[in-house]
Structures are given as C-alpha cells and as structure tokens.
Design a protein around this nucleic acid. Sequence first.
DNA 1: CAGTGAGCGAGCTTCCGCTTGACTT
Length: 783
Amino acid sequence: MAKNLVIVESPAKAKTIEKILGNDFEVKSCFGHIRDLEKDDMGIDINNNFKPKYAVPEDKEKIVKELKKLAKDTDEVWLATDEDREGEAISWHLCEVLGLDPQTTKRIVFHEITKPAIERAVQQPRLLDMNLVNAQQARRILDRIVGFELSPVLWRKMSMRNSLSAGRVQSVAVRLIVEREREINTFNSVSSFKVEAFFTAKDSQGKTLSFKADGPSRFKTAEDAEKFLQQCIGATYTVKDIQVKPAKKSPAAPFTTSTLQQEASRKLGYSVSKTMLLAQKLYESGKITYMRTDSVNLSDTALTDIKQAIEKSYGQRYHQHRKFKNKNESAQEAHEAIRPTYMDNATIDDSDTRRLYELIWKRTIASQMADAELEKTIAKIDISTNHEELTASGEVLKFDGFLKIYMEGRDDEDADEEDQEGVLPPLAVKQVVDLKEMKATERFTRPAPRYTEASLVKKLEELGIGRPSTYAPTITTIQKRSYVEKRDKEGIKREFRIMTLKADKITKTADTENTGAEKAKLFPTDLGMIVTDFLNQYFDSVMDYGFTAKIEEEFDEIANGKKVWNKMLNEFYEPFHQDVANTLEKAERVKGERLLGEDPETGKPVVARMGRYGPMIQIGKAEDEEKPRFAKLKATQSIETISMADAMELFRLPRNLGMFEGQEVTVNIGRFGPYAQHDKKFYSLKKEMDPYTVELEEIGPLIVEKRTAKDERTIKVFEKEKIQILKGPYGPYIKQGLKNYKIPKERIDHAADITVEEAKAIIEDVKANPPKKKAPPRKKKTE
DNA sequence: CAGTGAGCGAGCTTCCGCTTGACTT
C-alpha cells in the first residue's frame, strides 16, 4: 500500500501522474463529481437557507466505495482535482464522503501535466478554499431551482405533452436560434449594382496582363448604374496614384474546446459531438492534452517542443514565440490549450482520428510561427469622361510564415470573391490602361446566416453561457427536446441583372443564382418558438442574454469572500419564485394559434396551431356541430410562416391512388412520416417520394421490395404459434408477436435448426430471467 | 409502428457541470 493517495478527476490523467510521482504515490480518479443534489424536493431545503441535500448517485457508488477503502489504508490523501470552482467543490465533496478533515487535508493544483509542474505542486500544498466551494454550491443550487421550477410551469401551461424542459443555458440557446430565424423571416433583401472594370496593361517585357478594378460605389438602382456606364463611353483610363503598403497576418491562438469544435465543423464538417468523441479518443490514447478547456495557454515544455519542431522543419525564421491571452473573462483555465502531447508526431496511424489530430497539430504549430508578410497595392484609375475613379487592389505574399501550414476557417461562407485579391501587373502613375469591359452586376443583401452547431457554441461562449464540458450536451438536449432541429434547406433561384459596357456599347442580360441554401443548420421548431415566447413573456430576467454574466459576477464575489452564498441565492429566489407563482396562477394555456383565413367552401376559420401531437391546421371550431378537420404540418413548414394556400393543400391527404393486386392503395402521413397502405400493411415512402404527388406506379415496386426484404430476413416461421426466427443486425433472434427474444449463445450458430418446442422454451426462459436493463428504474423516496 | 386534436387528472417528466463506460433483440 502506497503512503500517499492522490485523487484527480480523469483516469487518463491519473495514469500519467502516477508515472511522474513514483512509488510512494498511488494516483486514483474520482471520475468527476461524486455527489449531486437529490432529485426529491429539488434536493434543496429552501426554507432553511437553501441547505443542499446531497446524495451519491448510483453509478458513483462503486468508485466512492473504492476510494473510501484506499483513503483509510493510506497515510496521506492529496486532493488534486482541477483548479476551478467545480474542481474545488469536487475536492470538498471528497472530504465529506471520505471522512477527511477539510481543515487539514492537502489540496494541490496544476494547470499542466508536466513533471516540473507536478513536482512543484506537491511541494506547495494548500487547503480547501471554502469560498470557492460555496460559489459552486450557489451555482449548482441556482441551476437546479431554475430548471426544476421552470420545467413544471411548461408542463402545466403548454398544450403539448412532450417532456418539456427549461434551464439557464438551454433556454437561452434556443432563444438565439428562434430570434435568428425571425430575423431571417422578416429580412427584406435590397439589391444594388456593383461595378467592376476589367483592364489590360503591358509589363516591361511588353507582355499583356489583365487585372480588375472596382467601381466608385454601389449603385442603388439599375438606372443609376446604367447612367454611370454611359458616362464611361469613349473614356480613357489613366493610373492616377499608386500606393504600396506592407501588411501582415497573425496566426490564431491554439485550440480551446470551443474553437476546436468550430474549426472541425468548418474544415472537416464534424458535428460538435463527433468532434468531442474523437478528441476523447485522442486524449485517452495519450495523443493530445485534455479536450475540455477554455484556456489558450501552452506549457513551457510544450513551447520548447513546438519551437524545436518548427525550426527543424521550416527553419528559425519561421518561429515566433507568442503568448496568447484568453479574451473571455469567464475562462477558468484549469487546463492547458488543446495540443498534441508530442509535437514530433505530425500525424498518427489511427484513421478515425487522424484528420482531427492533424488539425490540432497544425493549429498548435502555427500558433508559434512567424507572421505572414504581405504587400498591398492600391491603384486609383482616373476616368476621363467623369469625375469618378476606379480602384484596383492587389496583394502579394512576401513571406508565408504560419500560412505555410495553417489558415483559420471562416463562418461567413459567402464572404465571396470580394476579399480574394489577385496580383496586379506592375503599373506606373500616368500610365494609360485599356478597358476590355465594364460590368454592373446586381447584388442582394443577405440576412445573417442560421447557426450551425459550432457557431452556436461560439455565440454561447461569447455570452459566457455554458462550459467546455456542456457545449456538446446542450446542443444535443435542445434537439432531443424538439426545440431545434438540424437540417438542410434548398435554395431558391433568383434572377439578377447584368449590364456590360464593351466596345462603347451597353448590353443588358440576366442570369440566375441560387440563394438561401443551407446545410446542417439549426432551425427552431414551432414548439421551440412557442416555448421561447412564453418564457420571454413571463421570465424575462432569466432569458436575458446577460443573465449568466450577471450571476457569474456574483459567484465571483462569493469566491472572493465578498458575498454570502445563501444571501445571494435568496436575492435571486424571492422575485423568481414570485414570477413562477404568478405565472402558474395567471398565464393562459398556450396553443400558439394563428388565424390564416376562411375555408372557401364552408366559410369556417382556418387556424394553424399546436396540438397535442405537434403543429397542425384546423378548419372549424371544436364547438361546431360538425367536427373540425385536422391536418398535420409538413416537417419544413411552420405555424409562423405557413400560407393559407399551403395550409389548404395539406387537406389533400389521405389520397387514394387506385388498385394494386386487387387492393386499394392509399397514401398518408403518419406518426413516422409518409406511408402507403395496401392490404392492411404499411410501407414507408422513400425520401424522394412526395405523398402529395406520388403515383400508383411508384408504390408497386415499393411493396414488392419490402416483401422480398422480409423474406430474406426470415429464417423460419411457426405460423400457428406466431413465432418467427429472424436475422437482425446483431445476428439471429426470435420474435413472437411484437416482442423479441435473444437466442442463447450456444444455439446461435444453429438458429435455423431450432424447433418450435425449443423456441418456446427459449421464450419462457427469457421471460423468467429478463435481461438486465442498462438503467434500472430509480428507487423511490427512502424516508 | 402508421390514431389522435376536449377535459379530467392517474403518474410521469425537468436543471448544469464534472467524468467515462455500457452495449444492443
């Protein structure tokens, strides 16, 4: 038994540190938090100064038991959880649960897992900082109160019966997406005309080179643009002025969780959770440092390592020592930036994680490389027939620096050609240049783009909402709750006008472009909009984008000992709880109704609204003698934007397509999407089949295809007993009625030989010993 | 698997932030 027990949060970290500390130390991981608030009664005694009631969750019992035993058998316990609010609280919980004295137990911290850092830490132990612990408790309790008081309000006041939820982080994340959508819906696109002139000029060897110059400004109307082109007829163009300026570009800081998610999304097309999954793999195999961090800091050993790698591969000139500062004040900097553990490995063997690893390697290397040096040239060109002038600009890369290996991606995918500056031929003042043609092209203003998962994370981080460990789960939650969905949107064709001046003649043409196309963007659902509106109306302070930043300041004051944690909580709780009570009492049940018009046939009102099972259109009222008619909205339609015409179109379902093999074929949209019905059987329509336009000829093959697929999956059928032996993705299994039964391992290879008696026996056996569920039902109140 | 849409009201749901495995009928 080792003399010393060191407890850290992550097992991968424990392994590394154990190697560094040697035989006298046993290093164990507690896997994050080991206690949490009980779920009953919120786990808070509100009337007793918000006294928290903590419990060890079931899945942590095992590790707690093990740590208890180790702590008892060791001379000294060292708490080495992360140096932030949460880490401090984890150490305190460990004291409480392991029976350690918080007044004397050694607390150590380090920001990097390097030998000098850890040895230094061990020489300078401190004690628990109870102010920091109390700041964490306040954070935890406030989040529990917000979540567990707001969610039930939604259950009572919304007309849908999903398991709705609200919280300090998720509700604001949804709000961002809802507001962006409305900005887009109400956006009025304005067009203007952009003038570009294409010239040729001869260089010193007499070789002809072409270049482009931009017009004076955008013209608001076609008439103005045309007028300008007319004024240019017969003109000569003379270079009036040339300015040459040096410029430079600097590399981006090394990765944090948020910037890694953004770059992996932009450059590799990964979802936020995919990035985190791969990063976790890299971390566990020792390839990279910890992946949940908000720090851009690099350890001294890493800096040396990086410097050597740059100098070896690219030479001294390419290295530049840089120290990046976190721009986000709420950063808690318990870890380093995300970087490779060994810079020697520019790539790795594992094909799954290689692309992400290379991205991290390049970003890390580039962050310590020299600036790129550019030379920007701006030439003004005089037009002899009017007072306007044209501007040609060019850019020459003088020294590539960090651009040799890495350039940060951008979110504004359509920051088009305009920034792409080419190379200008050598020009001289007073030189006359030849116009080949001048074009005035119509361009349209665009609304802000919808959020991607990663750009939402970026926004949340800017607002100080959420933490590196929660960005990915938050994005998952708001999609799971159906407040938001990730999908593509097809663009629409738009015509734009072009006027061309060539050989002193103006011609007018038109062209089309695709606009508004989106890929893997976040769209709010009707539910998301209705819930957001409701929360905004009754709980504006929690929904405020500055709410988290404001309470974070108070948590900081608690951490600094300037504020008492339960007093802070009380100041928040009193008005908040009053709002909850008022809302429960006064707020109407929300349906999200929108009147679209009158049914031309019956004159009854046509309303778009939220039903128990989702958004729908209703013709007529419930109290009418004749029952109202209902139709479900399509996935891409929304209560807020659907037109009367589109709404009426929905009532064309179900459609009867005619007869197939002597039976009727109908199509409709059901709980699981569009389907065809034939001979009492259901067939899901293929993605490209639209139930409103699909024809009988397309359904026949669908039916046949499904039949053969089923035949192929079937190994054996016992008709009378309704037992089937089927082939599934995990091998053969038995099915009776709607229930599936696992075939015992020893029989699996001979599944085809199973007799009806054996099958029955297996079913009975499984029924008698039901397989363990992964999450056993939680225990009821114990009191 | 492929319905429904009103109201009553069993019994259920829910938060954020630390951490990894479990694991298919």
